[in-house]
Design a protein around this nucleic acid. Structure first.
Lengths: 226, 226
DNA sequence: GTCTATAATACGATAGAC
DNA sequence: GTCTATCGTATTATAGAC
């Protein structure tokens, strides 16, 4: 292994030697995943995309898997920061829905969901790869979970609805719909889903308001009996 | 191309020559997709799973893609028949939900969703493969669409909710959650989702009953304004 | 219809020159 | 740190014996 390992400290404002190349490799890896899918993302295709030599992938990351995981971890972290920032500024339900729709639309357009979907599919049956990939999904599910709990708070449904499962379902929905949407890009499935989110949000708002003002209504009681 | 092409007619009750092998290959293809994922499903691994020679895949189907598409089309058709039959016997809402949960649980357990998820992921960027795979999803979305419309009928929501988009979202959700669930099989995400379906169904029932008995309520009007 | 053998190609990864 | 060259191995697909 010729991993550069821990490097000397570098003057502030200056990049560590090779750091530029590392970033280029990560960028190229994401671009390739978006354009070619998991199957088409090899050390050679990544190098072709980024315009550098194939051997650099192994010099800097040791393996293709390590590049992909590093790339998705970096992407996930960056997007998560964006989400948290915007959500903090929109504490009520309409605000949360608006932010969620807005940032999810960005993710879809940037191809972030494509990257995640492709990696998830490619992770099949590979234990260590799956473990690390799952770890980069957890903070997202946590974030959705928090938002769901905030929305449910004071509606009388907080004890009935398992918010974590709902969060998993919502996260999974975007992965699945994006995958389905790419099967037939002409169909505009993803766009339809995003557009429908507004309608659904309006509906949900009305329903939750109903539950909020009558949290021990017959419907709620009936529902909790399951 | 050494495709056997159209074959002579065969006495009823008897299989056409090579038909047994064709079926074995399709079975092996699905088993391999379940066990190894899309990446691990090659002509050689399919042959290894089924205990036959690798060259037979090309003799009978011409290419690996053709085996996979034929296999999923056969599977989709068979499952669709099962769905339709059971749904016909359960015309009301509780019945529909029960059947849906039941048959979906079967699909998950048999690995049908895994097969679909893997193929969808592997189809990325391959136009003709995607087109045919999308075609085998359409009847499913149609079926879900019909069920959604039946549930919505008479609730006053039929004109507000775009049932087709909801159907796409529901279909996509199962694909996505299944993929996410396989990232960390220990987490029991898929099982949790299915278990939660009952609770959600109960809730939904209560909500729809509410809308049904007051289809021009303030909440409904507010929701339709978006 | 099923087999063996093989051609042509792509891959991950490494060695070693610079 | 980046390059060329290469090893070993996997793949799809085909040719041809049986």
């Amino acid at each position: 292994m010729s991993d550069p390992g821990r490097r000397r400290a570098v003057p502030a404002g200056r990049s560590a030697p090779g750091e530029v190349t590392r970033e280029r490799i990560l960028d190229a890896a994401l671009d390739t995943l978006r354009a070619e899918g998991f199957l088409g993302t090899t050390a050679r295709s990544i190098a072709r995309t980024g315009g550098f030599n194939q051997a650099l992938v192994f010099y800097h990351f040791g393996s293709v898997d390590e590049v992909l995981l590093s790339a998705v971890e970096r992407m996930s972290q960056r997007r998560l920061d964006t989400y948290r920032g915007r959500l903090a500024e929109a504490p009520d339900l309409p605000g949360i829905v608006a932010v969620a729709r807005e940032v999810l639309a960005e993710d879809v357009q940037r191809g972030a969901i494509t990257v995640l979907s492709q990696l998830v599919a490619g992770a099949h049956g590979r234990v260590e790869f799956s473990r690390r990939l799952a770890a980069s999904f957890d903070p997202w599910i946590d974030l959705v979970d928090e938002a769901v709990q905030r929305v449910l708070a004071g509606t009388g449904l907080a004890t009935v609805v398992p918010s974590r499962d709902v969060a998993v379902a919502m996260t999974g929905t975007f992965v699945g719909v994006e995958l389905l949407g790419q099967l037939d890009p002409e169909s505009g499935r993803v766009e339809a889903l995003l557009a429908t989110l507004d309608t659904t949000a309006g509906l949900l708002q009305g329903l939750l308001a109903l539950f909020g003002s009558a949290s021990s209504s017959p419907a709620a009681a009936e529902a909790s009996e399951g």
